[in-house]
């Protein structure tokens, strides 16, 4: 019962977002009360759908990079010679999360220029921690008896990793990815301050022109996207278990 409700809700959220992005003008009456008199009720300095697509793309690219690096690092520090690098890796990853993304942008722009690149770097660094820690927890939660059985039957290190450790850690790893994605959908809006295309543009335009309708549109679209990404990974998690 609650599952059906959940599914219906998910579809409703998706439909709302798609409907809004496909033809935002249709929603003008809803937003008009928030716009200053005479100002447009719907963002008109760019195509909302393509902004959303760019936003999604940058978040997903960053998450992919974070996942590859964080999972790789967590695997490295849980075996063999890598163990001694655990404190260092942990410090680095923590630093990536505590260092404000805005500050990352400020440092990255002089190095790589304006646009998507500095944003990608900021999101990548910001998203490492949850994936790293969850992978670590997942790998460590593998019962020693299972690993002993795996070795005892003649699995080598790689077979044990791919056949036992990773599958058992997968639910937790995905949870980390889920967290990282959701946080970064919101964080990605700051990319617009360094000219990366994205939904942040709408919010900033609203701030500059005192147009609450723009701010709400940008915020809502970002929020719905975060919810949908979260649900997409949740679906994947249910699939594998």
């Amino acid at each position: 019962m609650s599952r059906t409700i959940g599914a219906v809700l998910r579809v409703a959220v998706l439909a709302a977002l798609v409907a809004f992005l496909a033809a935002p003008a249709r929603f003008a009456p809803l937003f008009a009360p928030l716009a200053p008199p005479g100002a447009p009720a719907i963002y008109d300095q760019g195509d909302l759908a393509s902004l959303a697509a760019a936003h999604l793309a940058i978040v997903c690219c960053a998450a992919l990079a974070s996942t590859v690096v964080a999972v790789g690092l967590a695997l490295f520090v849980t075996r063999g010679a890598g163990v001694q690098f655990l404190p260092l890796s942990r410090a680095l990853v923590n630093f990536g999360q505590t260092f404000p993304p805005v500050a990352v942008l400020a440092i990255a722009v002089p190095l790589v220029g304006f646009g998507e690149k500095p944003t990608l770097i900021a999101l990548f660094a910001y998203g490492l921690l949850p994936i790293f820690e969850n992978t670590l927890a997942g790998i460590r939660a593998c019962p020693p008896a299972l690993l002993e059985a795996a070795s005892g039957m003649g699995m080598n290190g790689r077979q044990r990793l791919l056949g036992v450790e990773l599958p058992l850690a997968m639910p937790l790893i995905l949870e980390g990815v889920q967290l990282s994605l959701a946080v970064n959908v919101g964080t990605a809006t700051i990319g617009s301050t360094v000219a990366a295309k994205g939904l942040g543009e709408v919010i900033i335009a609203g701030l500059l022109s005192n147009n609450d309708a723009f701010i709400l549109q940008g915020g809502l679209a970002t929020g719905l996207m975060a919810v949908l990404l979260h649900e997409a990974v949740a679906l994947l998690r249910r699939r594998i278990r």
């Binding site: 019962p143 008896a145 299972l146 002993e148 059985a149 795996a150 070795s151 005892g152 039957m153 003649g154 699995m155 080598n156 056949g163 036992v164 599958p167 058992l168």
Partner: peptide, 20 residues
Amino acid sequence: PHLLRRRIGYAIQGHGLFPH
């Protein structure tokens, strides 16, 4: 070792079956 172990059966307490 890993080749040796494939020729030798190994069963432990609490069975160590792979839950997945």
